[in-house]
Write a protein that binds this DNA or RNA. Structure first.
Length: 150
DNA sequence: GCCAACGTTGGC
DNA sequence: GCCAACGTTGGC
């Protein structure tokens, strides 16, 4: 079992929205590195730190779980979608998604500022300068440590 | 294949 | 709203 951190802008899709929906197809990933994580490394049952980005208080706000293998993201074929990709063919889809299921909200937001402060997390991709990945791997030790802050 | 221009992410 | 960092695009 592996662990991940997945970013979402709360104005787009928040932890409360996931709580309500219970299961969400994680569409709109248009970055090859993030796609490859989904395609090659994610397995059903993997743990997810749900992270709010681009908001007043960026940080980890909840837990979720991978609920499907990677499969084609339908939004890439929809000309009306923001995520439409005219260069992607149905017989050879460029973009994939996984289904993400709600686990629970954290008792409090573990903020980015706090995470940056911890020597135990210095290797976490999230706190590295210029990091823009929306899906990134988290080690078991990092997962345990972050949850111990709750 | 290089690289300048451009667009996006996301913290602040 | 600003802007640093970084990915992508496209001319050559």
């Amino acid at each position: 079992m592996r662990y991940w951190l997945m970013k979402s802008e709360p104005e787009e899709f928040s932890i409360d929205a996931l709580k309500k929906k219970k299961l969400e197809p994680w569409n709109g990933v248009r970055n090859y590195q993030a796609r490859n994580f989904m395609r090659d490394d994610m397995k059903v049952g993997d743990g997810v730190l749900f992270y709010h980005s681009n908001c007043d208080e960026p940080g980890v706000v909840g837990l979720a779980e991978i609920r499907s293998e990677a499969h084609p993201d339908p939004s890439q074929f929809d000309p009306k979608s923001d995520y439409y990709d005219a260069g992607s063919k149905r017989e050879e889809p460029r973009w994939l998604l996984v289904d993400v299921g709600y686990t629970r909200k954290l008792k409090r937001t573990i903020t980015l500022a706090e995470l940056k402060d911890k020597p135990q997390l210095q290797d976490l991709a999230l706190v590295k300068k210029g990091n823009r990945l929306s899906i990134l791997p988290v080690s078991r030790a990092e997962w345990d440590f972050i949850l111990s802050l709750e």
